[in-house]
Write a protein that binds this DNA or RNA. Structure first.
Lengths: 224, 224
DNA sequence: CTGGATCCTCAACGATACTG
DNA sequence: CAGTATCGTTGAGGATCCAG
């Protein structure tokens, strides 16, 4: 059992040999949002040592989860993206995110929000992503300096980084918006107490708050 | 960002701080089968250093996933089990198992099968565990030295370690039974080629092979 | 005999500097 | 921009030992 192997013929053990490496889950989360350059990853993963990132990318490429691509155009920057096999890990990442979010009420000292964390949180909150076909709403969500967009259209929800072009509603908030996603802070109270600031139709925020859900675990003390 | 923290207010990051530790996923898998004593864990996790196991159990207890219990009876051995919060991690473990199993065709040199790996593999293969209410079948599954049981009754599948009392069918096989679960080796061929040996009604093995499923990933080369 | 604690070694990780 | 090189620190691996 040299190296990082567990020596068991077991799916979970095989998975653990890959995602059990430090930083690997967060690298995969960032790539799940879309292809990224090396420096994008460095920027989205504050604190990661550059040699660790280089090692992980190499290992993930060898394991078949990540591919490097040098785009055809004159732009010669290297871009990393998930392979189909890497995309297949999505449901597992979502399940882990949901579980972790269940125990996460307020930021710890110094904890920050990144683009990938917001996008993946909204994706998880969207669940199966199915909404009534008649809904046609575009949101821009801003948490601190970080901006993402969320679109409800044709019966499905899609989420991505950056602002929407012509959003029907802009939602500006801090990490406390977590309570809204948990269903413990209702939309009207969130607005009236200043936790959330809106630019657009407030009724669309009610829809947002009712549709997206990542509950708190009932088994975690409220102080956590 | 001291210690093992990632400094991000993100569910996946919080989860990674726990399950990203070496051996932790496998410890949780073993405990998900049922309460275990320290020495059971040592036995079920070949190669784990005893101090690492002790550290992990302490960390998991502090994180609220694991509880130590000294049973009321005269037996005074310490028993470790999952808390409700630990049980909530089940879906994430299952998703990881399924993903890992998708890339796992044959054992690597020296890889073994443990009781917890068989039980969790069968649980994952059972999916939502729903079967026709009329089915009432008890299986004993033996892979190498390892024995587990699987019961289809009252519309649901239950799985556990050890042999069944009066099994309707005993299935004896090696790791190659993986191909049956993947749906790439049909029941009759498995029996006729000697991959699987049965004691009981062969038709019940067809039911087993048709009901339990953990597919291979289409994106992993067959040589893996 | 179970449930660990201790000690030492070494590979992996982390921080910083530097290069094609 | 995309890494590699270097070096210090930490944690895992492995053996042994100790207490209830």
């Amino acid at each position: 059992m040299t190296n990082q192997e567990y020596g068991q013929f077991c799916g979970l053990a095989r998975a653990a040999e890959i995602v059990g490496q430090r930083w690997t889950l967060l690298i995969l989360r960032d790539l799940s949002v879309g292809p990224r350059r090396y420096s994008d990853l460095v920027g989205g993963l504050p604190g990661i040592p550059t040699n660790t990132l280089a090692s992980r990318l190499k290992e993930l490429e060898e394991a078949g989860l990540v591919m490097r691509a040098a785009p055809a155009g004159g732009d010669r920057s290297v871009v990393y993206g998930l392979t189909p096999r890497g995309e297949e890990l999505g449901p597992a990442l979502d399940a882990l995110s949901r579980w972790g979010a269940g125990g996460m009420r307020t930021p710890r000292e110094g904890e920050i929000v990144t683009t990938a964390s917001i996008v993946s949180a909204l994706k998880v909150a969207a669940g199966d992503g199915v909404v009534p076909k008649s809904w046609n709403t575009t949101y821009t969500v801003q948490v601190g300096e970080i901006v993402a967009h969320l679109v409800m259209r044709a019966g499905v929800i899609t989420v991505g980084p950056g602002a929407a072009e012509n959003p029907d509603l802009i939602i500006v908030a801090g990490p406390q918006i977590r309570d809204v996603l948990a269903g413990e802070l209702d939309a009207q109270t969130a607005v009236s107490t200043g936790v959330v600031r809106l630019e657009g139709d407030p009724a669309l925020f009610e829809r947002f708050a009712d549709t997206l859900r990542v509950p708190y675990s009932p088994h975690v003390p409220a102080g956590a």
